[in-house]
């Protein structure tokens, strides 16, 4: 495959039900949609023709409402679910081509997974939970213990190794979940709504902490959420799903500023564009302001505002030597006004 991204998913279909093959044919040719497929074939379309790839070190968010197929997609990456059609490549290898032993190795060494409801095993200590992936790979006990302590240290739970999961609060349990995913030092993280079950404040803490970890460790991450704000915060790129289909993939700015469909624009309508909008989108073309400070076309609004608050009256937008336009307080006010009107 030309594309050597760590996770690569091509025209993935997953249809649940006995007559999946027939439903697949009909759905591919566009004859039936999700409801129709259920009525005609008794099949549920979980994922429909999804393609995406996650670059190395990238956090790729999949966002969609309940039942849109997010969990189904992510479970294909470590083959907890097998596709009805389509290809999944992880680090250049087709996961459907792996034999059971290779698959177990891939799961234990290359991929770490975090679950919405933590899914810690109550009969094992925190340490045993965290080191489980190493244990199944028959890593010696001392190495395991060290790796577990290390991973717990990372999520600031050092010293809790000998406790049991039910002695910890929800937030701490999910830190353990994260530590378990990190313990074998995998290259890829799969996170299925990891913070959804937590209180807002704790959720924010964990988001920040994960962002920090993620910047340090540079793991390729597939992050699932049903919360657009979370997706915007965590993701380098976001894919938006509806009824099993990916309707738009793009950077947070792209999604907010240029929604591809009616559905996406309804979704992002509650998000303020002010954080993402850049100079070139609000300037008045032509007409330089002599002596004003100069900024590049992709300067974000907050940076422009800072210049104004430092006393500037007008700004010039320049791409290299070429003068593009200018921004005065009128443009700024207009932008804020239209953003407020959107919501």
């Amino acid at each position: 495959m030309a594309n050597e991204h760590p996770v690569n998913c091509c025209n993935l279909w997953k249809i649940f039900g006995a007559r999946a093959e027939q439903a697949l044919e009909a759905a591919k040719s566009g004859e039936v949609d999700k409801d129709e497929a259920f009525k005609r074939f008794g099949c549920v379309i979980g994922v429909a023709d999804a393609s995406f790839s996650v670059a190395e070190g990238e956090v790729f968010c999949i966002m969609g409402l309940s039942g849109s197929g997010k969990s189904t997609i992510i479970r294909h990456v470590n083959r907890l679910i097998e596709p009805t059609a389509g290809l999944i490549h992880v680090e250049g290898r087709d996961v459907m081509g792996l034999n059971p032993k290779e698959l177990r190795e891939l799961r234990a060494r290359k991929i770490g997974m975090v679950f919405q409801h933590m899914a810690l095993w109550p009969h094992k200590t925190i340490s045993e939970n965290v080191a489980f992936g190493l244990e199944v790979q028959k890593t010696p006990k001392e190495t395991r213990r060290a790796a577990a302590d290390d991973a717990l240290e990372r999520v600031s739970l050092g010293g809790w190794g000998d406790r049991y999961p039910d002695e910890l609060s929800g937030g701490m349990q999910q830190r353990v979940g994260l530590a378990r995913a990190l313990a074998a030092d995998p290259d890829i993280l799969l996170m299925d709504e990891p913070f959804s079950a937590l209180d807002p404040l704790i959720r924010k803490d964990l988001q920040d902490e994960f962002l920090k970890l993620s910047r340090e460790m540079k793991k390729t991450t597939l992050f699932i959420t049903h919360d657009l704000d979370e997706a915007m915060k965590m993701g380098n790129r976001i894919a938006i799903m509806k009824d099993g289909r990916i309707v738009q993939t793009g950077t947070p700015e792209n999604i907010v500023l240029r929604p591809a469909t009616e559905y996406v624009s309804r979704f992002v309508s509650s998000i303020s564009t002010l954080k993402y909008i850049s100079a070139v989108e609000i300037m008045t073309q032509g007409g330089t302001a002599p002596g004003a400070r100069e900024f590049g076309p992709s300067t974000p609004l907050p940076a422009l505002l800072k210049a104004f608050s430092e006393g500037a009256e007008e700004l010039t937008i320049k791409d290299g030597d070429r003068c593009l336009g200018r921004i005065g307080s009128a443009e700024i006010l207009e932008t804020v006004k239209s953003d407020l009107a959107r919501v």
Binding site: L80, R104, E105, L106, R107, F115, L120, G133, R180
Partner: peptide, 9 residues
């Protein structure tokens, strides 16, 4: 599922 996801047989 978690047990499978971490490579258990």
């Amino acid at each position: 599922e978690a047990a499978y996801a971490f490579g258990a047989s």
